[in-house]
Nucleic acid binder design. Structure first.
Lengths: 146, 146
DNA sequence: GGCATATAGTTAGTTATGCAACTAATTTCA
DNA sequence: TGAAATTAGTTGCATAACTAACTATATGCC
């Protein structure tokens, strides 16, 4: 097997999970140490709702890159924790608009601070221009596969 | 999916693992189209066993970056599919050595070819030097967090 | 209008992950 | 040597993922 293909296989194991898993675990740990009960998956839903409240579940699928059943259950759990509320759309009765509760709005600043702190911990010793390269490569990978 | 884009100036998409998720989904799809029943998580275990057979479960934890219960259950499922076999270590009775079956050995070439093909699909238009930068950054992130 | 098709969301089944608590075997060291 | 600590692996519980199949509503087209 040609040597460069083997290298790409090695990159697969790098891209596929280890670094982002490490970041995600650290963020979850930082949430827990701050006394927050939410999962990072739930947080990623809240994150998009903080940017724009009352999105449909389908729109949350698109923005969080999850499928519909995943969003259904994430919203179920967020509703149990009284962080969001499903509201029927007035113009399309198929659609649930997912809206933040006041309790969720109070989590925004703290959790985003913790996320930024986590990224700072992760990126110690990494050059700013290299971060831009990573973003660029990830965008290209994403565009290639979607 | 118009909103599945990384936003410039933020790395939350890295936390969400969007690029690695996209690669993993594509690899899973390519496995399925080739008639292979294994999951990418199972494949990642086999991958390390092809490099070195008969590793302990703990060693598989270290190499695949998973915790012990995850490996226990991945090995359970791989054993059900007759792709690996647990063997008691002769020198330490706490240890299970996980060894490949002949059926698993036959999967090596095809699945690694599919992984390389998937990486080639993912990396169209990506510069070789940028790949090296990604590897370097990921290694640094990993070292920072572990 | 009415039927075919597409879209929004839910449910069920299997696999995987994280954490905590557990058993069993080994090592440490007083 | 023997009790304490460590290590390897399993089990239980909760959350999350993907696929496929399902209901309900909306749209398109004749």
């Amino acid at each position: 097997m040609p040597n460069n293909q083997f290298k790409r296989g090695e990159l697969y194991s790098v891209i596929n999970g280890m670094a982002s898993t490490a970041v995600a675990r650290r963020l979850q740990k930082n949430f827990r140490q701050a006394g927050l009960e939410i999962t990072i998956e739930q947080w990623s839903v809240l994150y998009h709702l903080w940017k724009e409240d009352c999105l449909s579940q389908q729109e949350l699928c698109n923005r969080t890159f999850r499928d519909k059943p995943s969003i259904t259950r994430l919203i179920d759990n967020l509703e149990k924790q009284k962080l969001v509320k499903r509201t029927a759309s007035k113009t399309d009765r198929r659609i649930n608009l997912v809206c933040l509760t006041d309790a969720a709005k109070e989590l925004q600043q703290l959790t985003i601070d913790l996320a930024n702190q986590t990224m700072n911990e992760a990126l110690v010793g990494v050059l700013r221009e290299d971060i831009e390269t990573v973003k660029k490569v990830f965008q290209q990978v994403f565009d290639n596969l979607i």
